[in-house]
Amino acid sequence: MKPVYIEAIGVVGPGLESWQQAAAILAGDSEYHACELPALKPTMLKPNERRRTTLTIKLALQAVQDALASNSYPDLSTVFTSSDGDMDIVDRICQALCLPDHPVSPTFFHNSVHNAPAGYCSIATGFHAPSTSLSGLNGSFAAGLLDAAVQAVVERQPVMLVAYDTPWPGALNRFRQRRSPFGVALVLHPQTSAQSFAELTLLPGAGGDESKMADSRLEQLRADTPAAASLPLLEAIANNSTVRLVLPYLVDEQIAVEVRPCN
């Protein structure tokens, strides 16, 4: 498959406020403090829209906003990927369905679609280009990266990949491995440009041992949270490394990614 070029990055997670701050941590220039998630305020959404959104939607949009802070695009295709979507809303709807008269909130219901973050993103950005929302379970980041790269190469258009996951709430929590809230946005371009950070060549079908993080707290984050499977890639970019990474994909399968710095 032809390579794609990353030209904008956004990150948000526990102790990670932005790509700029995360890059310094991943390059070893500053220390990682695994604290709470920073306050999410995706101002790209108007206050009246933002008020109706959830943590999951805000998390995805915060990553988008960070990626779009340095580059502006008149229009952009998007690929949103998340293992399970917004389980907070599922919990609230399923509780309401057990009550007399089943009082499901209309706002929760329309926010319950897997593509709600993508919908709010298009409303905030005005992007009319194609948008998809998908899942590959624990391999959702690699599934999204592959889908976005395929779109960029075949359609010859830049594509923004947005990967995000949030913990399962309440009674659901014990049925899922521990998850931290994490969001990442990458703008992939089919051609290199002055803005390109790194060249990625995806090798589906190539397997091996998953790439891991040296820092134990970041490794925990990576192993727990599907969207944070992006951390080895982000680390390679922050260090201008030339490296072959192995990312978790479908059940018991991996995708290899060759990363090379640009410029």
């Binding site: 679609v113 194609p130 998809t132 899942s135 592959l146």
Partner: peptide
């Protein structure tokens, strides 16, 4: 390769694309 597309009522049109 495999994935689920979930974009509400356009989901299984988009799988053809």
């Amino acid at each position: 390769a495999a994935l689920t597309v979930s974009t509400a009522c356009s989901s299984s049109a988009k799988v053809f694309a």
